[in-house]
């Protein structure tokens, strides 16, 4: 079994996955745009900025 096959996932049906990449129902309309934008963000150097956590009084 390949590594990819060992990743667990809920069994979305084909129509739902298709809807992400080829939207016909008008539900998720921007998945490709989202991926494109995330790819732009991936290339931005955030240096050592940590993930956002709780907010404390200063």
């Amino acid at each position: 079994m390949g590594i990819r096959d060992q990743f667990g996932s809920y069994a979305w049906d084909d129509a739902e996955i298709s809807e992400l990449v080829d939207p016909k129902l008008g539900i998720i309309t921007g998945f490709q745009e989202l991926l494109d934008q995330l790819e732009v963000l991936r290339k931005i150097d955030l240096e050592a900025t940590p993930p956002a956590g709780d907010i404390s009084p200063k």
């Binding site: 996932s9 809920y10 739902e16 809807e19 992400l20 129902l25 539900i27 998720i28 998945f31 989202l34």
Partner: peptide, 12 residues
Amino acid sequence: RDFRAGLALGQC
């Protein structure tokens, strides 16, 4: 249906 589609997006 719309929430399932959103959750599927989260999986991807």
